[in-house]
């Protein structure tokens, strides 16, 4: 079990183990109270000053909640929909229709899979072109029936393989970018874990882009960047600093709209609470976006991406 935790989480875990041992033992209430206070202050201390590389590790945490973990907790009713109607169902992307407090919502998200068997089935959350084509089919379904779309991004990237190239990985991503720009329903994007480059963006064009506090979004993985720059993937921590890939960075660049706060210690320490926060963000944002006329919504969406870029002109 120990390899499921990060090094900098160890002091927190030691205290929590002590707490768990004392729970229910008569006469230990005072000690328990003290320990709980202590663990809170340790968490605050560790999490108040995370490096970008530590945030990368949290975004990839083996215990990090994935799309289906949130679906279970956010939706009152959910049916998964499968397949791109052309080639195959790609389990690295899940899609479905569901209800949240009486509102019908379409969801599309990456899914990494929890145990080894599921990870293999889901290709560690790295989609093939058919995954993106499934996503697009479901976006069109949402548009046809005027249902708002939620997407959840958590992928190392689009799958780099022979078959993926044969079936047009580039085309599948490009087409989604183009089509999502003018889909006539609200699209709300959450980066929940790893926002791995084009493979993330391919379901990431929307009216509101939110990032969970300890998620990342980057043009290239820190390892990939490090091996190009310094010919050494072990320099990834330094690359993460240079690439500026955290929610705070992207908010400061004006690329995302908001940061969704995580429970103290990260989303994996209290999945229900995290899901609750996301749910209220979804409901609030849907209300907000549904009050905007559709043509205006699309103008704003295009304008949002149209404005991104830093350059100088004489």
């Amino acid at each position: 079990m120990s390899n499921l935790w990060l090094d900098f989480e160890k002091p927190i875990n030691e205290l929590e183990n002590k707490i768990n041992e004392l729970i229910g033992i008569i006469g230990k209430e005072e000690e328990l109270k003290k320990l709980r206070k202590e663990v809170d202050s340790v968490k605050k201390k560790v999490f108040s000053n995370l490096s970008r590389w530590q945030i990368v590790q949290l975004a990839r945490h083996p215990k990090r909640p994935y799309t289906l973990d949130y679906v279970k907790r956010i939706f009152d009713d959910f049916m998964e929909l499968h397949g791109d109607r052309t080639f195959r169902d790609d389990p690295a992307i899940v899609a479905g229709i569901g209800a949240i407090e009486g509102k019908t919502v379409i969801l599309v998200g990456h899914e990494k899979g929890r145990d080894t068997k599921e990870k293999i089935k889901r290709n560690f959350g790295m989609p093939y072109p058919e995954g993106y084509r499934k996503a697009l089919r479901i976006f069109k379904l949402a548009e046809k029936f005027n249902i708002p779309i939620i997407t959840m991004i958590d992928t190392p990237g689009a799958y780099p393989g022979i078959e993926a190239e044969e079936r047009g990985q580039s085309e599948a991503i490009a087409r989604n970018l183009k089509e999502m720009a003018t889909i006539k329903v609200p699209i709300i994007v959450f980066v929940t874990g790893e926002g791995g480059s084009g493979g993330a963006l391919a379901i990431g064009v929307g009216d509101r882009i939110y990032m969970l506090e300890y998620s990342t979004y980057s043009v290239i993985s820190p390892e990939g960047c490090a091996s190009i720059l310094w010919r050494d993937s072990k320099m990834a921590p330094k690359a993460a600093e240079s690439l500026k890939i955290t929610a705070k960075d992207l908010l400061s660049f004006g690329i995302i709209d908001d940061i969704v706060p995580e429970p103290l210690g990260g989303a994996h320490r209290d999945v229900s609470k995290m899901a609750e926060t996301i749910k209220s963000k979804i409901l609030k944002t849907i209300d907000e976006l549904q009050s905007i006329p559709v043509s205006e919504l699309i103008n704003q969406r295009i304008d949002k991406f149209r404005k991104i870029g830093k350059y100088k002109e004489k």
Binding site: K178, A181, L243, L250, F305, I308
Partner: peptide
């Protein structure tokens, strides 16, 4: 996408594609 401009480069993909739409 030009790595040295990080997320700004990635978003150029969405920007150019939106204009094409």
């Amino acid at each position: 996408a030009r790595m040295q401009e990080g997320i700004f480069s990635l978003m150029q993909m969405a920007k150019t594609s939106a204009e094409l739409a």
